[in-house]
Design a protein around this nucleic acid. Sequence first.
RNA 1: GCCACUUUAGCUCAGCAGGUAGAGCAUCACCAUGGUAAGGUGGGGGUCACCGGUUCAAGUCCGGUAAGUGGCUCCA
Length: 644
Amino acid sequence: MELKFPDGAVKEFEDGATVKDVAASISMSLAKKAVCGKLDGKFVDLNQKLSDGSIEIVTKDSDDGRIALWHTAAVVLSAALHDLYPNVKFGEGGVTEHGFYFDTDKEDGQVGEADFEKLTKKMEEIVKAKEKIEFVEYDLDEALKLVENDEYQTEIVKENAADGKVYGHKLLNHVDFTSPVSLEDAGKVKVFKVLSVAGAYWKGASSNPMLQRIYGTAFSKQKELDEELKRQQEAHERDHRVIGNNLDLFFVDPKVGAGLPYWMPNGATIRRTIERYIIDKEVSWGYEHVYTPILANVDLYKQSGHWDHYREDMFPPMDMGDGELLELRPMNCPSHIQIYNRHIRSYRDLPLRIAELGMMHRYEKSGALTGLSRVREMTLNDGHTFVTPDQIEAEFKRTLQLMVEVYHDFNINDYRFRLSYRDPKNTHKYYDDDEMWEKSQRMLKAAMDDLGLEYFEAEGEAAFYGPKLDVQTKTALGGEETLSTIQLDFLLPERFDLKYIGADGEEHRPVMIHRGIVSTMERFTAYLTEMYKGAFPTWLAPKQVEVIPVNLDLHTDYARKLASALAARQIRVSVDDRNEKMGYKIRQAQVNKVPYTLVVGDNEKDQGTVTVRRYGQEKTETMAFDDFKKILNHDLETYSRNED
RNA sequence: GCCACUUUAGCUCAGCAGGUAGAGCAUCACCAUGGUAAGGUGGGGGUCACCGGUUCAAGUCCGGUAAGUGGCUCCA
């Protein structure tokens, strides 16, 4: 991706580059000029008068100058902190998708939410006074003197220096060397809000000290701030943990353990439906489904390499007292390898596709656990295809095709492909075979190019045994997660000495393709819950039809008759025969997001009809019961596709 | 694991100056109830997460533990 700068310079950025990366690169090399260009699908637009007097560049569909505004807000925040706590130190500041942040280190106790009021007040003072923000060029020595008691800023100043000069933004008596750009005065930060505080490692490395990251957001109009706060509220309401609670899908009980979810009947119904769907789908695509134990002797994982490369994510082995050590499996691959090795395999058997809804356990760090999307016990829609080397490309493409078809059935459209390579600077974390890595990474890329699919590349995201194609999706709260994955693996076949007999009668080494299409049942259910906002399509909905009699004495029998007829066809249906008013029951059905509510009274009973209300719609329609059954059938046959 | 914050009824929360607990929803009972988003009255329900400390007295203050939330680091 190319970004054009106002002085005519053109700079190349990797597709995965963040706004921060771009900002960082213009910070010193181009000294405060504007950038424009498309980044992450969003326009970066600094079309405002900047503190050095330059004005630049308009693009349409711009972001209204928010990037520059947020950098300015970060400068104001740092100046306010400096004023309130003269000895405070500063890490890096920057912008996010929805606002700005600044890292700080206040030696006498950390900055907490208790400081927000004071901090907001001080920022307001600075904003109201429309204090000038000057873009100042310093000699390096001079700048280092300014930050001499702040080891973080000292490092930043040294990094940013070029030709013995360094640039900073001066606001009141504070100079910020971190923010790449700023508007000309603090008054531009008309409406802002300090939102939260969180820990963040200096330079993003967990071996470094942790600083306090203060998040905020800012806009030029109150209305925009209100919209942003509303957006946050809506995001919260579609969070699968909130919906999961409201619809009674699952829970986690501290008495049982963190990251060990219980599936309530409603959640279990959704999960069971996904499981049946994917098993049937995979069987029709030539996968052979198996069952394998979730426990295995620790030697299995020593042979696979998990013990050496993955141990910190594994539960410690159980010592059975007689020298036997049993391990809860963290992955299913070694299990499927046992299946492969059960027989001598011929090239005629390949591709051999082994699949399982495999339960596995990973000791995720406590801080990483999140509802259903990050857990310690999970069931993966796992599959391993064993292929000859010249079948890799075709099988990879075929797997991708399966994935696209499944996504279509679930109506999943918002995702992007990531090619995940090993980190070339940290090769010790991976299986040590440079040639294998080069070869397989090239192979993946070539296949994607050949299919003409868009993707981005990321180093350091590979599995320890090989590179991956990951499908990245967004959670309700904006975090990015891997849903599906396809992984090439030359390592495990080696370690387990896998073989097949070729047409030449000789032994050859197969290649493994690991893949998960609908992810783990946990994460996939969480994802669907957020995507559908709890209003699951008919085929997935825990309850598909609610029947409400107008009068309990006169119409309950008819309601029950309808319900039995539907239940006989595996429709999940119930009759609401509680002693409540009809309006109350209809409300309940809507709150519980039941796809169809049938109201039946005299008219319906006499004519064999039902009055149908779809979830989320106010209009109702009276139709023959048989016609309603046809609608249901259509829903169930087409899943959630938008074909009607 | 790290930093900040949080933990009160089944759920969502109030209790903001230490004096042994409240609301709405849900639940139960009774009354009412015929057409598309909450009918009324009453009842039951809480060792205020757990352990320890300060105090005449702790839901409230202090320390520890656990879990959760927001991030960071790591990942399906």
